[in-house]
């Protein structure tokens, strides 16, 4: 217990290690965790978009949320995305498309720290469609994402 705590402490204290689990997904079949390598393995996609929270038009790189959900066996209902500070938002699965949102883990090619709303940030390509510039979409753009749970 102490060792585990220590290792966690170490992990958080220093730069994130490649094999540290970044995301926990709780589906009907059980719980899946994904580290940097696992996310990379999904075949990340990139797009550039401005956001209301950042300056300029950064390029975000990440895995489409749908890919992760499918991998976790979630294909219906609603999921609850939870942030590091326990901020949570509900996302209906059928509103998740193959292209977006993505679970971004890089901004302009750099891994994102917690101070930069990392390490995982749900991002939509806001610039590509005015329909995405809505309150609902902004609310679902959860940063410092750590956990996704299927809602019963």
């Amino acid at each position: 217990m102490k060792i585990a705590a220590l290792s966690l402490l170490l992990a958080l204290a220093g730069p994130a290690l490649a094999d540290d689990p970044l995301l926990t997904v709780v589906g009907a079949d059980g719980t899946q965790t994904y580290d940097q390598a696992a996310l990379q393995a999904f075949g990340p996609v990139s797009f550039a978009t401005s956001t209301i929270w950042t300056e300029g038009q950064p390029t975000f790189t990440g895995v489409p949320l749908q890919t992760i959900l499918t991998d976790a066996g979630i294909d219906e209902g609603t999921v609850s995305a939870v942030a590091i500070n326990d901020y949570a938002v509900q996302i209906p699965v059928d509103e998740v498309t193959a292209d977006y949102p993505i679970v971004a883990f890089q901004q302009d090619g750099q891994a994102m720290s917690v101070r930069d709303k990392g390490p995982l940030w749900v991002i939509y390509p806001y610039d590509s469609d005015p329909a995405l510039q809505s309150e609902v979409t902004y609310a679902r753009s959860i940063w410092q994402l750590v956990r996704i749970e299927a809602v019963r």
Partner: peptide, 20 residues
């Protein structure tokens, strides 16, 4: 403390930089 600091930091960052 570190985590709370980072979270608060990211908020201030957002307030400093966010278009909104």
């Amino acid at each position: 403390l570190r985590q709370r600091f980072d979270i608060f930091y990211s908020r201030i960052q957002t307030l400093q930089q966010g278009r909104t």
